[in-house]
Write a protein that binds this DNA or RNA. Sequence first.
DNA 1: CATACGCTACGACAAAAGTCAGACCTGCAT
DNA 2: ATGCAGGTCTGACTTTTGTCGTAGCGTATG
Lengths: 222, 222
Amino acid sequence: MDDQLSRDLKAIPLFAGLTERTLLELSRVALRRTYAPGTLILLGGDPCVAVFFIVAGQARIYRLSAQGRQQVLATLGPGQSFNTAPPFVPEASNPASVEAVGETTVLTLRKDTFLSLVRECPDLSWAILGDFASRLLHLTDLVEDLALRSVRGRLARFLLEQADGLYVNRQWTQDEMAVHLGTVRDVVGRALRGLVDAGLLRIERGRIVLLDREGLEAESDS
Amino acid sequence: MDDQLSRDLKAIPLFAGLTERTLLELSRVALRRTYAPGTLILLGGDPCVAVFFIVAGQARIYRLSAQGRQQVLATLGPGQSFNTAPPFVPEASNPASVEAVGETTVLTLRKDTFLSLVRECPDLSWAILGDFASRLLHLTDLVEDLALRSVRGRLARFLLEQADGLYVNRQWTQDEMAVHLGTVRDVVGRALRGLVDAGLLRIERGRIVLLDREGLEAESDS
DNA sequence: CATACGCTACGACAAAAGTCAGACCTGCAT
DNA sequence: ATGCAGGTCTGACTTTTGTCGTAGCGTATG
């Protein structure tokens, strides 16, 4: 009956090392939920009650300022998890808000269920250690970006990261880029024009063409 | 003979759950090292070969920009560890540079020794999970600070954090504060004067007096 | 006592970032 | 076709941040 749920559980890489038995138990306590595009899944600052695993769709993890500006911390897809850190820290609350990008399906486990699961399964804690570690490295990079680089530099780096070959195909609106870079749309627009004027890239309908990767890398450290 | 080393090992909270036997093994492979004030312990970007545990003194973890500006990620004291994340991520290099603040003594373990130790000891991996989790939360806060707050706001928050009651006793130079806030001395100076002019604090010889905590908290979100 | 040094204060300036308003373009729904 | 909405381009303007040079002040050192 809960066939679907079991299949979803098996598709989560973090759960790869679990036994059939544990998975079966999990399928009894995990909740499956689907959110419409743009829905708020989790509000930063609220007490932490559960952890989440993405089955389908995408989730945007972000912080909000008092003036309503956003900073995106990550955009996660199927198989990835969020809100897994606070359960390990007593009294911690949700570190950030999360919203569904497209239609998004998640599995959730209550905080204490998750913790006892981790205690019992060495494989799982190993996997989470790897996950946490790479998130730490990623956040450290983000901090350096924000503290030590100009918007123009951050934009150059961002485009290089997003680029698939010479092209950035995905339809990024300037607003989306802005929240990833911790700034506002207008400034992204100016920075983009600046890079175009410098001959480093060209903007076409629906995509951006990187004309000079080396030039962009030079821009990217500052 | 390696009595000192064993005693040092026992003083590291992360190792609290280890058996005598394991500690003994560790005392054979761990290296003890002391650095003079200001010495570079670890260079960011170099391949990761070892993890570190602080026995005495303090270590400043920071990133450097191309222009030589710094951003401090953390200042750690006895019992705390650094460079423990990269071993869990294949190919990862040291995420940041580390230097000794005062005279500082550390224990080091080779990366692979550390990893097999973690694999064998559930207690240890549990402790590291907690450590990583709180670092993640801390870094997330830092990102929000840098992305969404002005220097003045960050300074207000910083002072509130550092304050012991109404006083910030430690002798922070403006330069030190600047590298914690991701900016430069001059700007910290201006921001400080601004807060003084607003009547929120007073600067005395060797310490700062917070006159209006609520006012500072109001300043701190922006 | 003189000097050197580290830290701070201050003003002037330049660059970067944020804010605002108006106009345009496109696709879509009425 | 009309109107609307979302996204973009543009320029003007303000504020914030970073940079520079100079000067003051205290402590430590000779």
